[in-house]
Amino acid sequence: MTWRRGPRLRGVLAPLRNEPGPARPLSPVAADALIEATLNRAEGIEPFERPRMPRMRRSGRVAVLAVLAVGSVAAAGTKIVSSRLEIGPVRIVEHGTAPRPARITHRPIVAEEPPHREVPAVVAAPSKRDLLVDANQLRQKRQWNRAEKVYASIVKSFPGSDEAYTASIAAAALRLEHLDDADGALDLYLSAWKGRRDGPLAEEALYGMAGSYRALGRWRAERHTLQQFLKKFPKSSMREQVEQRIDQIEEMGP
């Protein structure tokens, strides 16, 4: 027996297509990173780091997706550089230390160049965009700890920049969702929110703050933050869910 969807539902359950929709578009860089990570897992090169279940599902990943979008742009810039220079792998910067420079070496122009004449290495620091791309790729590979460290290094090394703002939201989301560090996430979300209340990721910052309070069991602070969210973003697509959550908190009593 085959069920009929009827004329009203024909557009709702359409056949699959091999282009974006209903899944959101994925940049070529992000698609390649996803495929690479899959193949590495299939070959056992990188052990799969299964995500721990978060205390609640949060919108933080969306912030990370936004970072990916930025990363795509940054990657495009990187390609231009790569066509002229060989850039060594960007090292992962430990939290609290200055970013280590990538090693750049010029290609030898003449193949018969005498071996004793070594080409001096030109050292250049990775740009904040390169680091952002690197962090995004680590996140794609589910290397949450390493990704968070690179995001955190961007926040520390380039304070006040757009990249630091984006990285702080991404790092907060990783702390909350994967690293079981709601306190750390709250610090970053608070800082991002206070720094740019009208910033492009203000919605994510405020919603992330509420999620962090929730994970910490601070219901009053969560309710206050969600009320603030409704006031600040009355047309948010999350309005209904935020209102439901406020109702839930109020049903829990004082």
Partner: peptide
């Protein structure tokens, strides 16, 4: 865990 799922933010695609 028991907590209900949060919603997904809708981002406008490029």
């Amino acid at each position: 865990r028991a907590a209900p799922a949060g919603p997904a933010l809708e981002l406008v695609p490029e």
